[in-house]
């Protein structure tokens, strides 16, 4: 199958320093910097939460708790550049706590369950819709369906990996509680599985 053009790859990702700068500005009381930080790192937090496959209500709570904690810790975090890892790690720990307490996880998944409500779309989706990109969208749905057929461990890693902008390996490791060194090989293996499902 044909996969739509890839406009961006890992090595070209957003400058990490600017995330640290946003954090420092927010810590000094700059609300606009905070909003930019939320915009930039929310997909990472959401991806970590989604990778743990909580039911929607729990996923929403964990996402909020994670950001509320960061707001309270703005003046306490000593390494602004690592705020992404801090968020990923916090989200992971909250997910594990919810899972331990309830085992309310999504047993299986399908595109319908995970599809967002029509009135809850991100700007990115709105742009995609407006592109009149029915063919592209169909291709992306096929990619997503193939992803859903992967093993639990592959889905877990890839769901964090596909955060936008692409997370660093340190952020992925923090979000999944795994060693940085294991990410590359697992990524290669899982993407290989995915490619075979698509051909």
């Amino acid at each position: 199958m044909t996969i739509p053009d890839a406009p961006d790859v890992r090595a070209c990702r957003v400058d990490i320093d600017s995330t640290g700068a946003l954090f420092q500005a927010a810590a000094k009381g700059d609300a606009a910097a905070w909003e930019a930080l939320v915009g930039r790192l929310s997909p990472l937090v959401w991806s970590v939460v989604r990778s743990h496959r909580l039911i929607d209500a729990d996923a929403h709570e964990v996402f909020q708790t994670t950001w509320f904690r960061l707001a309270d810790n703005l003046t306490r975090i000593k390494e602004p550049d690592k705020v992404g890892s801090w968020l990923a790690s916090t989200a992971r720990h909250e997910c594990l706590k919810v899972i331990r307490g309830s085992r309310r996880v999504v047993p299986t998944s399908d595109v319908d369950v995970l599809s967002p409500e029509a009135d809850d779309r991100s700007p990115e989706q709105a742009v995609l819709d407006a592109e009149e990109a029915a063919g592209q969208e169909a291709a992306l749905r096929r990619v997503w369906q193939a992803y859903e057929q992967l093993s639990d461990s592959c889905r877990r890693l890839l769901r964090v990996l596909m955060a936008s902008p692409p997370p660093s390996y340190a952020e992925i490791a923090a979000g999944l509680g795994i060693a940085i060194g294991s990410i590359g090989p697992t990524r290669g293996r899982c993407l290989g599985h995915l490619r075979r499902l698509l051909t």
């Binding site: 890839a6 939320v38 997909p43 991100s122 936008s164």
Partner: peptide, 30 residues
């Protein structure tokens, strides 16, 4: 691999984006 990963990224943006209402709550937390 990078191309495939990026297709996944775009699929996630399309099919499982951060709910806009949650982003607003996170912004409000400040």
């Amino acid at each position: 691999d990078a191309e495939l990963e990026n297709a996944l990224r775009r699929a996630a943006e399309l099919l499982d984006p951060v709910p806009a209402s949650l982003m607003e709550v996170a912004v409000e937390a400040f």
